[in-house]
């Protein structure tokens, strides 16, 4: 639930967001803020980079910013 304060940075969670709509790296970081996940900034960078490498989402530029997205 949104109130649990227990958001986890997982491949499944990232996949869900990117299937819903294109997002920038910063958009994703906002969803997985360190204060919500309990990870350090460095861990967040490493884990999110690994997840994005595995998912290998398509990219498109919207308003001059690179967005990632996944087709269902």
């Amino acid at each position: 639930t949104p109130c649990s304060g227990d958001i986890q940075l997982t491949e499944e969670a990232v996949r869900r967001y990117l299937t819903r709509k294109p997002m920038t790296t910063k958009d994703l970081l906002k969803k997985f803020q360190t204060k919500k996940t309990g990870l350090s900034s460095e861990q967040t960078v490493n884990v999110l980079a690994q997840i994005l490498k595995r998912l290998n989402p398509d990219r498109k530029t919207i308003h001059d910013k690179m967005h990632f997205y996944l087709k269902e």
């Binding site: 790296t25 910063k26 970081l29 960078v45 980079a49 690179m66």
Partner: peptide, 20 residues
Amino acid sequence: SSSEADEMAAAIEAELNDFI
């Protein structure tokens, strides 16, 4: 802060671009 988020985003994108 937003500048920290900028740095984190830049680090992630740099790692992805190395990968590609």
